[in-house]
Design a protein around this nucleic acid. Sequence first.
DNA 1: GATTGAAGCGGAGGTGCCTCCGCTTGATGC
DNA 2: GCATCAAGCGGAGGCACCTCCGCTTCAATC
Lengths: 203, 203
Amino acid sequence: MKASTLSITPARQLRADAQRNRERLLKIAVHAFSHKGPDVTLESIASEAGVGIGTLYRHFPTREALIEAAYRNELARLCAGVPELLRTRPADVALRTWMDRFIDYLATKRGMAGALRMVIASGGNPHAQSRERLLEAVGALVKAGADQGVLRRDVDPADVMIGISGVSLAAGTPDQRQQAGRLLDLLLDGLRYRPPDSRRRRG
Amino acid sequence: MKASTLSITPARQLRADAQRNRERLLKIAVHAFSHKGPDVTLESIASEAGVGIGTLYRHFPTREALIEAAYRNELARLCAGVPELLRTRPADVALRTWMDRFIDYLATKRGMAGALRMVIASGGNPHAQSRERLLEAVGALVKAGADQGVLRRDVDPADVMIGISGVSLAAGTPDQRQQAGRLLDLLLDGLRYRPPDSRRRRG
DNA sequence: GATTGAAGCGGAGGTGCCTCCGCTTGATGC
DNA sequence: GCATCAAGCGGAGGCACCTCCGCTTCAATC
């Protein structure tokens, strides 16, 4: 499998100095984003890393790309938690729990939501790694739900993924956390399996 | 009832010259946004209107405020269509149709989505007029659905509103229109009434 | 019609984003 | 070790955003 052509993971071996700079930038970026909030200027990150702003932009063409790269490890951990979730509870509950974790995760990284939107929306780019990972995680949860008969079969994990992203964007501030929860409940209710004869039935 | 303290609708009578400037700005803004896209610079709008950039910012503190004000009439028309919808079809279908119109409306005004997010998220400000109107519209649809027994009773229209906004943000580009549609279906399925004994039932 | 002060104006200036292109440096072949 | 040149670097510069505050104008009062 070939590596991505995005700067997230270099397509071909970078020159040694370039590699150094990239690692340097990432390290500084992680620190800056978590200590100074999501509004740190890219210029300050570049200069702190001892490189020019141009170099930063070459490695990470957008602010989002940098943020995503910075948090990719943690994102991976989030995804890696799925099997454990599925082992310990029904799939619908697992999915709901995962959604919660996801939203909370984003909440702690203000500014991450926008980056994630980009990542998730990169539908045309099958190499966007975080997207792949996230889709895989959601896919596993949805499939387990279908197999256990608690979730529908006819749902595209990508739609669920976008749904979660939408919730996080629309109700993204801490004080809207409750509302986000209700929306996730609603989304999940839409995802639940129910026998055909109960659909659209009038009360 | 007192008017809003937001600049959207002036709190108190503006001085004649200020009033002129505001109208001028709005007229130019409507034209600029629809002809040159959502990325027109505010400076160009200001100068075209023959006022300083400072004046523009005084009247419309954010880009979003200006966009919202510019499109408020059309937004109002969208809301005004609700009774007609409810007269001619079941409430769930009416709601779904309205959602579609809403998304399509936003799609034609790229850049409006962000503005709307602001408007909708302004939960703390009961005077944001567009928000009021939109909530009213959704409220009417949801209530009709509940009365007809096709939608749940326990749903907060504000949540639905945020949900729609989320969909429009998350799947906002034209080529994602289909995905947006599927998400709306999902949302609506979550909103549908179904007899208690069919909930969470295993297949 | 003069006075006055509150309301409004405007645009210079500070900030950050991002691009562009001439210069530098590492890798490769000899 | 040296030559070569693509890969990489850096930061000046252009652009847009937004703030701030000294100046102007309106309208209320006499």
